[in-house]
Amino acid sequence: TEWNVSVWGKRRAFTEHIEKLAELVSEKTGGEFTMNISYGGLSKNTENLDGISIGAFEMAQFCAGYHPDKNRAITVLELPFLGVRDLEEEVAVSNAVYAHPAVEREMAQWNARMLMTSPMPQYNLVGTGEPRDELAEFDGMRVRATGGLGEAFRAVGGVPTSVTASEAYQAMESGVVDTVSFAQHAHLSFGTINRATWWTANLNPGTVNCPVVVNIDAYDALSDAHRQALDESVPEAVAFYLENYGKLLQRWDEVLAEKNVQKVTIPDEELAKFREVGGQPIHDEWIAEMSAQGMPAQELYDLVQQTLEQHRASN
């Protein structure tokens, strides 16, 4: 069996679990089950779910925020200020939500089945000019942020601005935006860190959720041995991802020092104020809106909170 896997961009920390998965599966099946990972050759990144639905390829990665209407249920994971602290917690809440029947149903519409998540750290800001460490300074700030994050910044007077990830550097350079919110690996790979003078170490406004899915028919057509090899390899691949991303995060402080980027710590009372306007009200709004569309929104939301508590209790 050979599977085609559609991802995008370049090979980076964000895709290492997929590379690892391919390696493990091939190893375990003695080279019988291989994966051919294509970076952008098979589909546009916003259409990976379409490709899965068609059956053009068997496995793909996508991000919920690229097209909220395609995947309403998992947008719960992209709400601002959910309180997720690290990548392990991100994996735990993602897995819990992915297993929810509402998510399974919605993915089944695309003939897709959740395989694993691509946990990303909090989308902290890099910015140009004077560091902004008080809420009042977010007023009028042009920020590159999408979805729920954009809403959170809007709530404190920020101006969310549309630029694509690949244009973020140019937008920063040209003053189209003052700040960009990304995960660390993206600040590195899109070069926004090179224009920055400061980085918010503890704003932790939220993140983007990017699952890896498989085509249901292809998954069902696997022989038992191959399917078992695939399923068993998932935890290992995610563990490898976490380890690898952990190294990147360790290096992050060195990068900041090297590029002479100031690490900004925002005082707790300021953060609390931000959460007050940019957190709960937006959560409530999401719950109301999604419930109106027949989504078990409260249930999904509570599931995230419970999972966080359980995860912390068990550690």
């Binding site: 097209h67 909220p68 209407d69 519409q109 969310p160 549309s162 694509t164």
Partner: peptide
Amino acid sequence: APLWSRDSTIDIGLPI
């Protein structure tokens, strides 16, 4: 679905 939309744009969520 609302606005008959099952696919939306990244930033302001326009139906595609």
